[in-house]
Write a protein that binds this DNA or RNA. Structure first.
Length: 851
DNA sequence: GCCACTG
DNA sequence: CAGTGGCAACGCGGT
DNA sequence: ACCGCG
């Protein structure tokens, strides 16, 4: 039995990895050779090179590059390997600063002439502006992630080869959207949220829920059949309760399947467990059959209380965060703290019940029986039925990603339970998330006996291969725990099959490749290394040798187009590894990367407006302060100008935004007016701040009422989460009135609400007046007052973000702190349109409203 | 994060 | 030269 | 009149 299982695991996966690599390489070659019109190609590439000499080990050629109208040339050596997989080129020349650059390129076989030359992004360094100029002019194309690069801004760290030179940073914009989106993410956990994915409203949910009805209907059908549901099991076979059944695993795909033969569940972010119930004895078994009952006491108790007789239930145990989304990190915390009271077991399959094996029974029937079995479990208890929907999988995946969930699992309704990985279960992820073997670590530079970054690898064709590092995502505590776990298994040599490169080995302490880390990433670089990898936790339920690369099976291969980059100027980003949000391990570099990633979304809301900042150069734990006026030493990317005797701070682009990050800005608060007309606001903000203990529904209701009242005044409004507890309702107006008028208008609206529902709303800041009410703060609309910007981070635990949402989403299960720096990019990537589309164009008049 | 001021 | 404090401001209610 | 709070 066991050998067969192993063969099934290793065979296809290993093959697919190799095939993936091959096609990736081919895609690039195809692009290079594709007979595009010369004009088009030269715009993207803009240089020619000729092969000069070519021997068995090295390839030499001249690189001619037009820089600032001047043709320059270099001798280029490629080598030492001629392996087609090694596409790196290094420039060796004495006479030009570009010697420090490495290139990656593709050379047409046996030809002279044009080809794609791509700057290789690791450890590259430009001592002067030439490379930037070349990139800006499109003379060089730039890749950070090869085929998997997405359009948008990318933050590049440029490390000089020569140690004495200073490190610098560069922002590069890639304007081609590449088809291979990133996959993975977080998980949603309750049935209500499942329902949201169907687009049903809160009212419908409250009325019993379409999903529930669905199940009730199915149950009714089952019950209507001749005998009782349990006895009448098609294909159920009399059998003994198995000791353990190898779990069915889903294959990762890029795009969820559509069609009536599929059903879709939310992908839960926790530990896969099999509940084996044999009378009073309840065991919880991991995917390898280990008994973890003791770690999940509350779950076992919850199952015991069901008094099921005997059953084998497949499911996932999770811990829900405050936002209602399940979190793997929280689960691990709960386990290590020895408490299981917050854990929830989501049951999604039934393999055996009361003397009958259901392995051969079709899934939909198994789920129907499972639902019937769990019919009486209390809502909100520690055992829950994992609901599913029949809707189009692609749409469901999109909604799931927009809600910040990890992804979805699609299952064939008609298939029996099949242990091991198969294609009858498919998973689609919102954020790419994978396990890797920890091969070593770099000690923290900030605290002793703590890990600074992890050196990771995975098994490819049975060999451990370096895949990169994860240098963010550790909380202080976790960094010390990891050190404690890794220090005892230190070894002197790298555990990789091949000798690691200098880059890979820099600062490394090697360890026995035993531990498995779960890592979240945002794609792969051209060299097959991790991009933006963040550590998520240790996978104690997995063996290191099982960590083979898991890449999505593409439905249609998307050939890479040449990204067209625009580079900004180099700048400094000091202390990139400083941890600003210790609870989630978000670093300064991570913050800059976040803003680069959401640049297109946030910039329209923060550019050319006076800014106030909440700065905290030492993170949310250090001393933080507001700053409104410019100061000496802020770079040129941030504008300062004196208006009406005040030194106003503003930015014009992403360079400015990153300069704010460099200055230690944790929150960005723009004024409600534009720089060019500072005295006339074009945004009015209602800040709904609920008292402690108020339900979220009440806040939603409040926001909807604000919207309704504004509608009566013929004003369209927009809503965003605050990143804290409340909501912000924003009204775009024509900049026709002054601040005093705007504030008076907002006060008028809020006071009318407070007057009509004094038990629900107050316009009074006083603590007492706010008891059990929602304080609607209209004072944000005074001159110089500000509200946090859309997409700005908040200086609170979890690195939450203020996020614009559609009014239709508000009726669903979105929470004010639902999105954070980690989950928001996935939402934006899957967004069909901007939730605030049109806000910049509306010219609503409040000067015409009387009263 | 950085400047200005202090001892 | 190392150490340290500031880095917004506005309405409100309480003292 | 002043202070502390958000």
């Amino acid at each position: 039995m066991a050998p067969a299982a192993v063969a099934r695991k290793e065979g296809p996966a290993a093959r697919s990895t190799a095939a993936g690599k091959l096609s990736a390489y081919k895609a690039k070659r195809d692009f290079t050779k594709s007979p595009e019109p010369a004009a088009k190609r030269s715009r993207a590439v803009g240089h020619r090179f000729a092969i000069q000499r070519h021997d068995a080990r090295r390839l030499h050629f001249d690189l001619r590059l037009e820089l600032g109208g001047v043709l320059k040339s270099w001798a280029v050596t490629r080598g030492p390997s001629l392996d087609p997989a090694d596409k790196r080129l290094s420039i060796h020349t004495e006479d030009h600063p570009l010697e420090y650059l490495s290139f990656e390129g593709v050379i047409p076989d046996g030809e002279y002439g044009g080809g794609t030359m791509i700057v290789w992004d690791h450890g590259t360094w430009t001592p002067d502006g030439d490379a930037e100029a070349a990139i800006a002019k499109g003379h060089l194309s730039f890749t950070l992630a090869g085929e998997r690069l997405r359009g948008g801004w990318h933050l590049i760290r440029m490390r000089p080869r020569a140690k004495e030179k200073k490190e610098q940073w560069l922002l590069v914009k890639v304007d081609d959207e590449h088809a291979l989106a990133s996959v993975g993410g977080k998980q949603l956990v309750d049935a209500e949220l499942t329902s949201i994915l169907t687009g049903r409203t809160n009212a419908e949910l409250a009325a019993g829920g379409a999903i529930r009805k669905d199940h009730a209907a199915r149950r009714k059908v089952a019950a209507a059949k001749p005998s009782s549901p349990r006895a009448r099991v098609p294909k159920a076979k009399k059998a003994l309760l198995p000791v353990f059944l190898e779990p069915s695993l889903a294959t990762l795909v890029e795009k969820a399947p559509a069609g009536p033969e599929w059903l879709h569940e939310i992908k839960h972010d926790g530990y896969r467990l099999q509940a084996r119930i044999d009378g009073h004895s309840v065991k919880l078994l991991t995917r390898k059959g280990l008994d973890w009952t003791s770690k999940f006491g509350a779950v076992a108790d919850g199952l015991r209380e069901l008094k099921l007789g005997s059953a084998l239930i497949d499911g996932e145990v999770v811990v829900e965060a405050e936002s209602g989304i399940s979190s793997f990190s929280l689960l691990q915390e709960a386990i290590s703290a020895g408490r299981s009271d917050r854990m929830v077991f989501y049951a999604f399959d039934l393999l055996y019940v009361d003397g009958s094996s259901l392995e051969a029974t079709p899934l939909v029937e198994r789920k129907t029986q499972l639902a019937a079995l769990l019919d009486d479990v209390p809502a909100g208890g520690s055992v829950r039925f994992s609901e599913h929907i029949d809707d189009d999988g692609v749409a469901m995946a999109r909604h799931a990603c927009r809600l910040g969930l990890e992804g979805i699992v699609s299952k064939r309704k008609d298939q029996p339970y099949r242990p091991g990985r198969g294609t009858h279960w498919l998973k689609t992820k919102c954020i790419e998330r994978q396990e890797f073997v920890i091969a070593g670590f770099v000690p923290s530079t900030t605290s002793p006996k703590a890990v600074g970054s992890l050196i990771l690898g995975d098994y490819e064709n049975g060999k451990l291969v370096y895949v990169g590092r994860a240098g963010t995502g550790f909380t202080d505590r976790v960094a010390r725990e990891l050190w404690a776990a890794l220090d005892p298994i230190k070894r002197t040599t790298a555990p990789f099959a091949a000798k690691p490169s200098v880059d890979a080995a820099r600062g490394a302490r090697w360890v026995e490749p035993r531990l498995v880390a779960e890592v979240e990433l945002r794609g792969w670089t051209a060299d097959g290394l991790l991009r933006h990898a963040a550590y998520k936790g240790l996978r104690e339920d997995k063996d290191a040798v099982d960590v083979i690369r898991e890449s999505p099976k593409a439905s249609a291969s998307a050939a890479a187009k040449a990204p067209s980059p625009i580079a900004s100027h180099t700048f400094d980003l000091t202390h990139p590894d400083r941890v600003l949000w210790p609870d989630v391990g978000l670093t300064k570099q991570g913050l800059a990367e976040y803003y680069a990633e959401v640049a297109d979304w946030i910039l329209p809301h923060v550019v050319d407006r006076p800014l106030s900042l909440l700065r905290g150069p030492n993170g949310i734990g250090g001393k933080c302060f507001f700053q409104k006026h410019a100061w000496d030493g802020i770079g040129e990317a941030v504008q300062r100008q004196t208006i009406a005797g005040e030194e106003i701070l503003s930015i014009r682009n992403l360079d400015g935004l990153v300069a704010l990050v460099q200055a230690g800005s944790l929150e960005i608060h723009p004024w409600g007016s534009k720089l060019k007309d500072i005295e006339h606001p074009d945004r009015i903000v209602f800040d709904l701040d609920p008292d402690e203990g108020l339900t979220w529904d009440a806040v939603v209701e409040g926001a909807l009422e604000v919207r309704e009242r504004l509608r009566h005044l013929k004003l369209e409004s927009f809503v965003k989460t605050s990143g804290g507890k409340g909501l912000h309702v924003v009204v775009p107006v024509a900049p026709k009135v002054d601040w005093a008028t705007a504030k008076a208008f907002a006060k008028h609206v809020v006071e009318a609400m407070a007057k009509d529902s004094p038990d629900r709303y107050t316009a009074n800041v006083a603590k007492r007046a706010r008891a059990d009410r929602i304080f609607i703060d209209y004072l944000r609309n005074g001159r110089g007052a500000t509200a946090v910007a859309p997409y700005s981070t908040r200086a609170r635990a979890g690195a939450p973000v203020s996020v614009p949402i559609g009014w239709d989403e508000l009726t669903a299960g979105i929470r004010p702190n639902q999105f954070d720096v980690q989950t928001l990019p996935a939402r934006l990537r899957h967004a069909e349109h901007d939730a605030w589309a049109g806000i910049g164009k509306l010219r609503q008049r409040i000067d015409l409203i009387r009263g």
